[in-house]
């Protein structure tokens, strides 16, 4: 299955993860009543091996908790894994929370998991940069993060 990538807001692909102490920081988050975290684990591990610093939220987190972690850890990338179908309520709550702390603009928000085609435009409108469905290769995700992690 293909993943959709939003190219509009990403202007300056930069060489991240090298140079003076700069390292891409990611929060891999599981929200809501969703106990399946194999995917989140695989992504965390792959990000780590790609040289990123990964913070994993653990299971069953509330949107507020994800926002708190994303703000305090000052992450470049927030990857939300949702397999429960509750993305249309949970994701907007997280985006609003980021907005509240002024973190929405320069956090690259990705959603992974089972997201039906018809729900995708709405999430994109909320500010999600890309949605990676089942079958997306890990290399593709890492490449996307490298190219689009916000320059600060």
């Amino acid at each position: 299955m293909s993943s959709e990538q939003d190219e509009e807001s990403q202007s300056q692909p930069q060489s991240h993860g090298q140079g003076e102490g700069r390292s891409i920081r990611c929060l891999v988050a599981k929200v809501g009543l969703d106990g399946h975290d194999r995917g989140a684990h695989v992504i965390s591990r792959a990000f780590r091996d790609a040289g990123f610093e990964v913070i994993y939220s653990g299971l069953h987190k509330a949107p507020d908790e994800i926002v708190q972690a994303a703000v305090q850890e000052d992450v470049d990338v927030l990857g939300i894994s949702i397999l429960s179908g509750a993305h249309d309520t949970l994701v907007p709550k997280i985006m609003d929370g980021l907005e509240e702390y002024g973190a929405r603009e320069d956090t690259l928000v990705l959603v992974g998991g089972v997201i039906p085609e018809e729900d995708r435009p709405e999430l994109k409108e909320e500010g999600v940069a890309a949605i990676f469905g089942p079958g997306t290769s890990i290399e593709e995700t890492i490449e996307f993060v490298r190219e689009n992690a916000p320059e600060r």
Binding site: G17, D49, A50, G51, E53, V54, I55, Y56, S57, A62
Partner: peptide, 18 residues
């Protein structure tokens, strides 16, 4: 080798979350 890390301490800090 890669400089990557999984920072896992946060998971244990659930009492004060939020």
């Amino acid at each position: 080798f890669t400089g990557g890390a999984v920072l896992g301490d946060r998971i244990r800090m659930a009492s004060t979350i939020g």
